[in-house]
Design a binder for these strands. Structure first.
Length: 576
RNA sequence: GCGCUCGUAGCUCAGUCGGACAGAGCAUCGGUUUCCGGUACCGAAGGCCGGGGGUUCGAAUCCUCCCGAGCGCACCA
């Protein structure tokens, strides 16, 4: 905890924490104020409203039956007597009854010194210390290359994991896939048909797709088989390795295994390009093999939540408020995807995670409540599972939507996207919007390496600071850590310091709200504040003491940009 | 029909405990450089926050009804 206090010492969060007890003590002297009255602070939008504000008086008006302005006056007067003048410069009543606080400059300089001392670790907090978190993401079944939607999932999940890591959690990144169901069977049959065709053991036939067009496929190719070129490549590899030896085998296993391995290798390679490395993989088959799936079925049955009908086993989801019950085990004896999914989640609980986050596409929204409710029925605390849903991605090029057909596998793959715009831009564009909004990914804008492209604005600011610091050192200036930071009194210097000190809180908010997009938005503000400072405050040419102090401030800005981009998984280049 | 997400400037979007005159980027128009990276900075213009009703001292934010968009509503995942 000592670490936590030290890290946050300079941020507005700790200022709130230090002001709150004072205000609480004052409120305690008012009979009518309930003990559980919540004291809240906000960071005002406008500088003339100070650095921190509270609406306490406004909210007490009805409770006390007095006008908010006069309540505020009384509170402010007593607060002024209590606060530490080395941290708070002024306490004022403003507007309808807000109490505005202004930070003392020494408080800012101390914060800046702390920031510089922490360096690469600045921004880390330990509010999650001692807690473990599992983030499940990507979780695409290995039936083909990752698409653009998987990309949003992957980048969101990865960044959420990093955010939790930076806020103190012990984080595990996990990828779950279904390797036991129908999809993998269709995949194996698709490969087998291609393999037979390559060996000359199958003729060709035509198949009509949903859009009315026809394609040539081998005889025996599944109705809903996978049409991509990668299937043929896998078949060819099998043919090279085994010759005709697999022609007569009825067992799909060699085809399935070969496909799974080949496709997984591709998926992992794609993820690696995006700086994504999973800690572990979990698969459905293992849950069947070790009996977890059966335990779940037994548990739900013991809870009285299942029944048999039409040869299938049903889950009474109506008991959770749904319109219809849903099938757990099909007539065929095979479970639906839901059942192993519940089983998988029980393994997360059994492994003892305090927090479990699932990243799912919007198309899952109807399904996950069943999983959560089933977990609740099995005695697990569903509050510990948090589902982050993201809306779909549309690729556009200027005004033109990019047409895609999943069926034909002629969609733009995630690899194609990375080839076209690069990993940094890919990550940034997926992260800069709220998961809740439908994402328009503009390839034209993404490819533009100019000021129009927000990721370059941040990278440019970082590169520029590196360049300026190098130049200043070349001509004989230095930024010792004993520089006198109190020389930084220009309005743009103060504004930049305040912006930089918000970083730990900003990461905290992003982690708490599961909202990675807070970070790109914040970093843009940092880059803007730096640019304004840079425009109005020279370094080279100033007297040594001031130049040193400004170099320290530039270094601090560089640190925040670098750390922020690191959290986003994006490179912070020294030059563009 | 039901459910989820969304509807904010010309475009793409912030605004996540309801707060003080609604923000950013791009696009448009205008300005800034003897000087550290102008891929920058400053300014202007641009909004009945989809619409109606309600709660509140106060609503883009909460409730309700309507309109519109996307996604779901499988013994597919």
């Amino acid at each position: 905890m000592e670490q936590h206090v030290r890290v946050l010492q300079s941020s507005p969060l700790s200022m709130q924490d230090s002001l709150r007890p004072h205000l609480r003590a004052i409120l305690d002297t008012f009979e009518a104020v309930p003990d559980n009255f919540e004291i809240t602070f906000e960071e005002p939008d406008r500088p003339e409203h100070g650095d921190l504000a509270t609406n306490t008086a406004l909210r007490l008006a009805s409770v006390l039956g007095d006008n908010p302005r006069s309540i505020a006056e009384r509170l402010a007067e007593r607060l002024s007597e209590r606060v530490d003048p080395s941290r708070i410069r002024s306490v004022e009543v403003a507007g309808p009854g807000f109490i505005n606080f202004r930070f003392a400059q020494d408080y800012l300089f101390d914060g800046l010194a702390d920031l510089l001392a922490e360096g690469d670790a600045f921004g880390q907090t330990d509010v999650g210390a001692g807690q473990t978190a599992l983030v499940e993401y990507v979780s695409a079944n290995p039936t083909g290359p990752l698409n653009v939607g998987h990309g949003r999932n992957a980048v969101l999940g990865d960044t959420l994991a990093t955010l939790l890591d930076w806020t103190g959690y012990d984080v595990t990144r996990e990828y779950y896939y279904n390797d036991a169901g129908r999809q993998m069977r269709v995949l194996a049959r698709s490969v087998r048909a291609r393999y037979k065709a390559l060996a000359g053991a199958a003729g060709t036939t035509t198949m009509t797709l949903d859009d009315g067009t026809t394609v040539e496929v081998p005889e025996g190719f599944p109705e809903d088989g996978y049409l991509g070129q990668y299937i043929i490549d896998i078949a060819r590899d099998l043919s090279d390795e085994h010759g005709d030896a697999l022609l007569d085998t009825e067992d799909l296993t060699p085809f399935r295994t070969a496909a799974e391995e080949a496709i997984f290798a591709e998926i992992e390679a794609t993820l690696r390009r995006l700086n994504i490395e999973m800690d572990g993989f979990a698969n459905e088959q293992a849950l069947h093999d070790d009996g977890t799936v059966q335990e779940v079925l037994d548990g739900l049955t013991d809870a009285g939540l299942t029944y048999e009908k039409d040869g299938a086993l049903w889950l009474k989801t109506t008991a959770f408020g749904k319109e219809d019950d849903t099938v757990l085990v099909k007539q065929s004896g095979e479970p639906t995807y839901r059942t192993p999914d519940i089983a998988y989640h029980t393994t997360k609980f059994e492994r003892g995670y305090d927090l479990m986050i699932d990243v799912f596409g919007a198309d899952h929204h109807a399904a996950y409540p069943d999983v959560l409710n089933a977990l609740g029925a099995l005695g697990y605390d569903q509050e510990r599972v948090d589902v982050v849903l993201y809306q779909f991605v549309t690729l556009v090029r200027g005004d033109e939507p990019v047409k895609m057909s999943t069926r034909r596998a002629n969609y733009v793959t995630l690899d194609d996207l990375i080839d076209e715009v690069g990993a940094d831009v890919t990550r940034f564009f997926f992260l800069m919007r709220s998961p809740d909004t439908h994402l328009n990914f503009d390839l034209e804008l993404a490819e533009e390496e100019s000021e129009k492209n927000p990721v370059f604005y941040l990278q440019y600011a970082h590169a520029r600071i590196c360049s300026v610091l190098d130049k200043a050192e070349e001509v004989g200036f230095s930024h010792d850590d004993d520089a006198d930071l109190s020389l930084l009194t220009h309005a743009d210097e103060i504004a930049l310091i305040k912006e930089l000190l918000r970083f730990p809180q900003e990461l905290q908010n992003a982690a708490d709200a599961r909202a990675p997009h807070f970070v790109p938005n914040y970093l843009r503000d940092v880059a803007t504040a730096f640019s304004q400072f840079y425009d109005n405050c020279r370094i080279i040419g100033e007297e040594d003491a001031l130049a040193s102090a400004r170099m320290r401030l530039a270094l601090a800005a560089k640190t925040v940009l670098k750390n922020g981009l690191t959290v986003l998984g994006i490179d912070a280049p020294r030059q563009m």
